[in-house]
Every structure is written in structure tokens, then in C-alpha cells.
Design a protein around this nucleic acid. Structure first.
Lengths: 219, 219, 219, 219
DNA sequence: CATGAATGAGCATTCATTCAT
DNA sequence: AATGAATGAATGCTCATTCAT
């Protein structure tokens, strides 16, 4: 902790501003001035804290990947039984709406994966982590007798994550599929995969503090 | 007496060059010079044919959306029975590999949908068209007795497209899921949805001339 | 007459188009393409006939200066008595309206006089010629006993031209002074200068063929 | 802690440089680089202070119109009697010489009035203001018994301004009429209009500090 | 004779970056 | 610590000009 505390606070404040600026203007078009304006600072101050803007963006992407996974893992831990965990996982995986910052960020960065090996690895890790969460849950549920798996846990897990990813895009892009439909489709697929009827269960909405934490300034 | 007009040829040549340039450098970073170099022309010539670069990019996106759909519809028409059509559709929907130009293009443009209403509409149309292809096929197969649908055709169709979209991204981004795995997962889901075992059928690979035609320079 | 007749025709056609283009877009902003469009030709053809656009513009200016003077001299010759000639001169000196091509052209070129010695000389010659017309007329009228000059003919002549120039600008710029007012002021001043009441005389409107000739294509 | 703001100073410095550049190169041909060189700055700095070059030019025109009027109004106020005011007005209305910056600017902008409604309004306002100055002065002089008007004050006032405008052009364009002649003609006309002999009065030359103030760099 | 194709010089403008304060 | 000033590299775009047909 060599850096003074106030420096860290400012860097976190700038990171939050940069997230907002990326979502607003798009990663492709965000300028230093946009970040500065979102932070209520001058453009000079942004480069004062982040000499290279790429450094800031890279950190934001890594944070987003990490946060997305931790958020979902926590949501699952809050539930006791496998079915509850499964529904919690689905709800945590879908964006709240068209402006869900975390999901928007992940999609803004996605085209870069093809060209930047580091980001491809990050993206791969994110997918594998999510799939592993589902796979572990399915396996555990099957062990406990709660689930009667219709297909291998790994395959079902990957399909669940894939469906989430695709529908999440449509939700934030504002195209054909609404969040409610996406949730229904996912619950439907999960029901098939686990041999249980998850549709009868009450939905477990994301808690307010999670949502706030998602966009909160770390400082 | 005057020079013959070759505008259309050159515009097509430039569009092909621009597609390559976008895939190579990313939509966010392509410069006029990149397009010019890919076309073997001077930067001035690019703006001679496309006064605004946006005009060119927009046309490329619209073409890509259109081509993706037509390509798949044609692949399905070549097959006689519902199961064959279904497998053809799946194969036509997945990218050939990490450098599949058409799929790369679609993913390069995808983050813009959130901000550009026109592109969101285009993207929505693409999803709806693809889903409709599947939905019609599933319904027809059910009518003929070939399929015993496990869920509503519309829902199954959307899930198939969603799975394709998600796995296509992983294939071109080079992350966890290979094309072979993706195909297996999709065939598996299609088998479940249609109540038929599609895995035993011989794959119907995309024909070589289709692939060539997809990226060919028309000039 | 070494040049073929058709060449001369085309050059005259282009000059007329250039005049229209200058009046429409302003000398400062006129582009080769504007001239080409006004002529219904391609930009390449314009440079084919006028290698340097300046050459064309210079010719247009010289023509305009010449035409303005000849037009007025002719209008005066058509009248028999001094008073009629004076009124004819005034009417020939004022623009028909906001779009009077000849006057607009002269004003478009006027700022260049300060920097281009040749154009300053041209402009000087135009003023002197006009003043001479008036001075000769005033002197002749005084000799004949028709006018009783209130001040030296040369001074009165220059003032008449100056008033014309200034009011002409307001007419084509569409500012405070209308053509009718400008004419009244000029007639008023001429009445004072000549010691005659010119206001009672019927106006001698510019003849239709003059107006047509003013904007006509020389070819 | 932050740097002090010196924007206003620099903007004024740049405006002065732009005025010089316009007079030197002509409004039609000034480039950002010309302004930058005149200001001793880099081209980037010009756009730093004025994002759109038009913005700077528009401001310069508005300032010029305003300054021209205020300068003359002040010159008139310095004189006590109507005849003195009249002579002061005439002297303030004519350019000092061929390089009178303020007059050159007004003539550089004049062709644009036909095409830009805003500039036409500005130009109209300038004419009306000047004419009003004269009209008020003539009417006041007539009331005091100093002047015996030979024609309506409004008409005489407009003619005075028109003569000034026209002769001013010849002075800065360096054509036939010298400043001395122009002044004599104007004084002659004013004498006629007011029924007084203004020629016997000592001329009231523009004061040196006014001239300096007119072109001075405020930075 | 005429023009469409192609180019490169020239331009305004954007923007990250440096620096003095 | 923070920022306004200043700059120059980069870029899209305009446009006169050249040239092949």
C-alpha cells in the first residue's frame, strides 16, 4: 500500500466514470474527455492518473469479468437447495435491462477477443468459470437426487451459459427477446436438463444491494 | 466517347476490401487507409466511391445480415427431408473457423446495436428471420410426422438460434468451445427438441463453392 | 479564328454557367463541380476547356465590367434629350433586383481589387468610365442649356456613380434600401445637380431585350 | 492549484490575428495556418480556442460592425456644434488609407450578405445605424437653426452614408478616388444638404489614439 | 471531343499528450 | 494534486488535376 489512499480513491472514481463513459459512448468511441466529463474532472487529470488509457480499460475489463462471476457465485450461495441455486444463477446471469452496466461492458469488449490474446483468455476463463458453476451445481443436485440429468452436466452447463450469453445480448441491444422471455426459455431448458419443473418456483429476484454494488464506485 | 462506367464493380471490390480490413483491424480501428491498402488503391479512391465511410460500413453490415440469412436458407433448400434441413441449418449457422468473415463481421457490428437504432432493427430482423426459418422447419416436420416437438416450435427455434449465436462467438474468438463441440451441442439440443436422434445422420458440410463465393471479390 | 467554332461555343456556354455558379455559391466558394453542374457537363470537361479556373473567372470579370458599361452607354444613346439620357443612365446603373447577375458578379469580385493589381485597375477603369459618361452628359446638357449645374460636372458625376454603387449593393444584398427608394434618391440628387426637376418625367424602364442580353449565353 | 484562465485574453489575441490575416489574405482564402502564423501560435491552438473557424469569423464581423458604429458615435460626441459633429462623422466614416483594417474587414464580408441571412441583417443594421446618426444630427441641427435642410433628413442621411460607403471602397481598393477627394465630395454634399458652408471649417482629423485602439491587440 | 476514374495535395478538425503553474 | 494551455500527430474529407479510354 505504497500509494497514498487518496490516489486509490481517485483511480477508483475514474474507473467508475470510465465504465459509464464506455457504456454511453461505446468502447470504440470513448475519448479521454468523455471519461473526464463523467468523472467531473479535467482531461488532464485522467492522464495524470492513467498514463495510458488502455491500462484503465484493461483493468475495467478484468474487474468486470471478475465481478460478473463473483456476483453470480454469491447469488447461488444465498440459496439452500439445488433448484433455488439454479434459478438464482439464471437470474444473476441475465442483465437487469437495457442499461445493465456490467453486461454492457462485457459486450463492448467482446469483439477485441479475436485480436487480443489476453482478452481472449479472459473471455475463455469467464465462460469456463460460469460453466463450471453450473456443472458443479448440476452434479451436486444429481448426487443429492434433486436433479435427474437429461444430458451430461458439462454439456448442459455450457448450453445454459450459451443461452444466457445470447439472450443477454438481445436484452441489452433491445431486439426481439425480452428479459422475461429469456428467463422463461432458460428456466425451461434448465427444467429439461435437470428433469425437474423449475417453473413453478417463485422467482428469486436479484437483491437491491447487489444491483447497487454492481455500478458502485469502489472508492 | 466517354469512359465506360465501372462504378458498381469498383464499389463491390472496395466493399470486399473493407470487409477484410474490418476483420483484420476491427471495426473500431479501421481507417480509410486500411481499406485502401486492402483494395490496392489510394485512400482518395476510397472516398471517391464512398463519400462517407459510414455509408460503406452500413452497406457492409446490411449485406452481411442479408447474406447470412440467404446462405442458410439456400443450404436448407438443398436438403429434402426435415432432419436433413435441420442439420444443414445448423451447419450453415456456425462459422467455418476462427476467420469466418461473415460471422466476424456480424460480431464486429454487434456492440453498435445498443446505440444505433437502425442497426438494432437490423440485428433484430436477423434474429427473427433465423428463428422463423427454424420455427417453420420444426412446424413442417411436426406436421409431416418427422418431428415430435418437445416444446413450442417458436421457443425451440429461438433457443437454437441463441445457442448458435453464442457458440459462434466462441469459435471466432478462439475460446473454449470448438466448432465440433458446438455442432454436437446444437445437434443434441435439436434432437431433444424434435424428439429424433439426429446424431446418427451424416453431417452435411457446407459446400466449398459456397464458402468461396461468400468472401469472393466480385471485381 | 484558329479555334473551331464549336470550341468557342462551349467556352461561352461554360462562361455563362460559371457566372450562374458564382452568383449562386459566391466567388469564394465556387468549385469546378458547381460550374460543371450549372453547365450540365462533367467536371473533367470544365478543365478541358479552361486549364486554370482563374483564367475563366478573370475573363468573366472583364466581360462583366465591359458589359456593364456598354449596356449603360447604349441605354443612354436610345434617349434623345439630356434629361432622358440621365434617367436612362440611372436606371441602367441600378440592379433589376436581388438576383441581377451582372451586379452580383461585380460585387463578388470587388474584395479582390485590394490584392490583385489587375483587378484594381479594372475596377478603377469601370468607375472612371461610368463617371465620364455622366460627366459628358452633364457638360453637354449644360452646353445645350438643359442643365444648370449646381457643382462641377466631374464631381456631380462621381457622386452619382458612388450613390449608384452603394445603393446597388443594398438592393442585391437585400438590406434596407429598395430599388424604388434608391432610384428616387438618385433622381433627387441628379435633379439638384442639374438644376432640373427630373422627378416629373416618366421613368424609362430598362428594355426587355437588354435584360435578356444581360444574362444571355454568348454562344 | 490549477492554471489560471487566460482564455479571454487569448481569444482576443487570436481575433486580432485573424483580422490581420483576413485583411492580408482575403476572407475567401484565409486558412487556419494564416491565423496561427499571424498570432505566433500553432494551428492547433487556434482550434483550441475556436472549435469552428466560422465562429471566429462571425465574431470578428459582429465586432467590426459594432466598433465602426461606436467609433463614429464617439467622434461625434466629442464635437459641440452640429457642423463640427457633421464633419467628425464624415471623417470617422472614411478609411484612414488603403490599409484601414476596420473598413477592409467590412468589405471582405460584404459579398456574403447576399447568401447569409444573418450577415445581411447585420449589414442592414449597420447602414440603418449610420443613417440614423446622420438623420438625428441633421434634425437636431435644423431645430437649433444651424442647418437649413435642402431635403428630408432621412434622405440626406442615407445619401451621406451611401457616398461614404462607395468612396470608402475606392480608398481601400486604391482606385480613382483619394481620401482627400472623397472627403471634399462628402463635405460638399453635406454643405448642400444642410445649407451651410462646411468647407471653411478646419478639418477635425481622427485622433491618433483612436486609430491605434482600432487595430490594437488587446492581449 | 468528352468524361469517368483515379490520385494526391491541402485542409479543418479531433484528440492524446506534454507541461507550466 | 490538479488543470488549463498548448501542441502536433493522425485522420477524414474536399477538390483540382491528370489520364486512359
Amino acid at each position: 500500500m505504497a500509494r497514498p489512499k487518496v490516489q486509490e480513491q481517485q483511480r477508483a472514481h475514474l474507473a467508475a466514470a470510465a465504465r459509464r463513459a464506455i457504456v454511453t459512448h461505446g468502447l470504440a468511441h470513448v475519448r479521454i474527455r468523455d471519461v473526464a466529463e463523467a468523472a467531473g474532472m479535467s482531461p488532464g487529470t485522467v492522464t495524470y492518473y492513467y498514463r495510458q488509457l488502455d491500462e484503465l480499460f484493461q483493468q475495467i475489463y478484468e474487474d468486470a469479468v471478475d465481478r460478473f462471476h463473483r456476483q453470480r457465485a454469491q447469488a447461488m450461495q444465498r440459496q439452500a437447495d439445488p433448484a433455488g441455486k439454479l434459478l438464482a444463477a439464471i437470474d444473476a446471469g441475465l442483465p437487469e435491462g437495457q442499461d445493465d452496466e456490467l453486461c454492457c461492458l462485457l459486450y463492448e469488449f467482446s469483439p477485441q477477443a479475436r485480436r487480443r490474446p489476453g482478452e481472449a483468455a479472459l473471455r475463455r476463463g469467464l465462460f469456463d468459470q460460469q460453466a463450471q458453476l453450473y456443472a458443479d451445481l448440476l452434479a451436486a443436485g444429481a448426487d443429492q437426487g434433486a436433479f435427474a440429468l437429461a444430458l451430461p452436466a458439462a454439456e448442459a452447463a455450457r448450453n445454459l451459459v450459451a443461452l444466457e450469453d445470447a439472450y443477454a445480448y438481445h436484452i441489452i441491444a433491445g431486439t426481439s427477446v425480452t428479459r422475461g422471455q429469456a428467463r422463461d426459455y432458460l428456466v425451461g431448458y434448465a427444467s429439461y436438463a435437470t428433469g425437474t419443473d423449475l417453473k413453478r418456483r417463485t422467482p428469486s429476484p436479484r437483491r437491491a444491494d447487489e444491483i447497487a454494488g454492481c455500478v458502485a464506485d469502489h472508492g
